[in-house]
Amino acid sequence: MADTAKLPADSFKPMSADDRAALDSEKIAAPSLTFMQDAWRRLKKNKGAWVSLILLALIFILAFGSAIASPHDPNQVHPEYANLPSKIPGIGINGFNGTLVQAGQRIDAYKQAGATGAHYLMGTDYLGRDLLSRVLYGTRISLIIALVATLFDLTIGVTYGIFSGWKGGRVDTFMQRVIEIILSIPNLVVIVLLILILKPGMLSIIIAIALTSWTNMARLVRAQTLEIKEQEYILAARTLGESSLKIAFKHLLPNLSSVIIINTMFTIPSAIFFEATLSYIGIGISSPQASLGTLLNDGQKNFQFLPYQMWWPALVLCIIMLAFNLLGDGLRDAFDPRTKE
């Protein structure tokens, strides 16, 4: 058993101070990461979420950039160029080369309309307006509605949730009953009622969506607050005499941040969805303004003959929804240390 090989003579001297200093038992080989760094690292590893983030950034830049520099004026009517299909230079595939089937024959719609020099990437609508510019414009309106509504929803929902969870007792029970009553009517019905009262328009859509969609946030924040409230560090802060407001901002909010961020990522697409539904029904944004919903509604009427007029806004809408959902999923995984590999 024992090693019989010759060992150097000084092997059995007690370890020197230098040797000991070199051996730092507290050394951690894996790099230490803060919570946010760790979440960020995991988010970056999630390809779907990462691509979504880049896509969303691109869509935001394009949609809001088009307010300054749009390929065409989204409201400029060209009746002679009406219903031209997509024409993307350099692509010869049917559907993207400006041709369409008319009476069983594929013809060049651009030649027929006398617009040989022009090319509309997504084609034009029934009034000859450039669809790409309309889609960018509509995306901008949809995003603005969704973002502003979500912002309201954030403030109402988070405040309501924290208050309800923090107070507890009867106040909490009452506040939860109120939410249950609101939740006992489908959201869209409430939104429609509110819009009828406020008169259709962008502002009333924003208000209606904001007033109805905060309940989910409030419930999640309340549940989390109830949990955090029992934690030792809150007790410590209370014992030290910190004011409730200070505790809420210094201790509660940072620990709620992941719940809030994740839920926001799911609120935005649902707001976009509600707006699209409203516009689709016909009580949303009205002409000449456009949103993704109105574009879809317009496109759907001619889907049989001019499918591109619905495909393009539908594609953009689905990409935005998909990207927010994937990002939300990615963030949830990133913030949840249990999914750590």
């Binding site: 060992l7 092997s11 059995f12 370890m15 038992s25 080989a29």
Partner: peptide
């Protein structure tokens, strides 16, 4: 002290760093 990180175990005796009786050879073999 604390146990060593097993991502990168030390050469020699893993307990050497926390051992008041450690010998020179403990860091080598």
């Amino acid at each position: 002290g604390t146990p060593p990180d097993l991502l990168d175990p030390p050469t020699g005796d893993a307990f050497a760093a926390r051992n008041a009786y450690a010998l020179k050879i403990d860091t080598e073999q």
